[in-house]
Amino acid sequence: MNVDLVVFLALLSAGYVFGRYNERKHFRSIQEREQAMRELLVFSERLPPPQPGAVECTLVVGSCVVAFDYFKSFVAGLRNLFGGRVTSYETLMDRARREALLRMKQEAAELGATMIVNVKIETSSISGEAANATGSVEVMAYGTAIVPRQRG
């Protein structure tokens, strides 16, 4: 049996097993934290709704880098032949977006914010154009945290 083939199958299975395990774990964690931080509202509106009392505005940022596993890259490569939804990357991007938002919210929560406005999400590939590089994507979420000014 060909050595290349053995290596390929090993990478594919490892990618599948670990990738799937991590994905499930990550989704569970995301869902729990989203529930926990539901009270902190996020909006893409540029300006906050009229607030009673004085507030402070602070930039908050959350970012997350997720790497493709071999299995996902292979499936996506096959998908390039036929076109259509690259479902293997969809879960990855969903996780990265939500994780970035959560980290941004975490930062805002630590500042005592009640809401974040003007939220933007940016995505960039950090694998570069190198051929065969195992790619990663960074998703960054940033916005303006509205922190009610402490009295006294």
């Binding site: 998908r79 032949l81 479902t87 969809e90």
Partner: peptide, 29 residues
């Protein structure tokens, strides 16, 4: 009204089993 409704899980990605997609794609290839 300002609110963040709960988004149903899986709204932004496919719930299909990845091995199923792999099998379909491999057969096609």
């Amino acid at each position: 009204r300002y609110e963040n409704p709960q988004i149903p899980e899986g709204a932004n990605y496919s719930q299909d089993h990845p091995l199923k997609e792999l099998a379909v794609l491999l057969l096609g290839a």
